[in-house]
């Protein structure tokens, strides 16, 4: 079994792939189905990509959950400029030219739990959870 939790710094583009792979490994060990492994890995790589593009650096933390339900928790944290209009972005009504927001929206769709805290003063923290069925 791998570690209970894992921190992956996002600094260079290669870190996105690293975070993705580590997440997928943890999901596999937790016994998530293949398709859910891919969903979580995809969500992780979107969050990591967001960090890399908008905040340059940040941290992805992967954690095993056991109570009340077994699963994986992903926390993506950065001290970047925050996301203006995050509500509009998540409502899906936001038409962005840069594709910004698509990652968040898609990531939310791929997991069971999604929470975001963002602001210009505190950067962005996204918490995702996916449970083993």
């Amino acid at each position: 079994m791998g570690p209970e939790s894992l921190e992956i710094e996002i600094k260079v583009e290669g870190d996105i792939v690293r975070a993705r792979g580590a997440g997928r490994d943890m999901c596999r060990e937790l016994g998530l189905s293949e398709i859910n492994q891919v969903k979580v890995a995809t969500a992780i790589s979107e969050l990591a990509r967001n960090i890399f593009h908008y905040a340059q650096t940040g941290m992805i933390t992967l954690r095993r959950l056991s109570t009340p339900r077994a699963g994986i928790e992903i926390i993506a944290k950065d001290n970047g400029p925050g996301i203006p209009d995050v509500k509009l972005v998540l409502s899906g009504a936001y038409k962005s030219k840069t594709g910004m927001g698509k990652g968040l929206l898609g990531a939310r769709r791929l997991v069971d739990f999604f929470e975001i805290d963002t602001g210009p003063d505190r950067g962005t923290t996204v918490v995702l959870r996916k449970f083993v069925r």
Partner: peptide, 12 residues
């Protein structure tokens, strides 16, 4: 909203 999410998922 669901459609936007689905599209976002497809895109990513």
């Amino acid at each position: 909203r669901l459609r936007a999410e689905e599209l976002a998922v497809l895109e990513i």
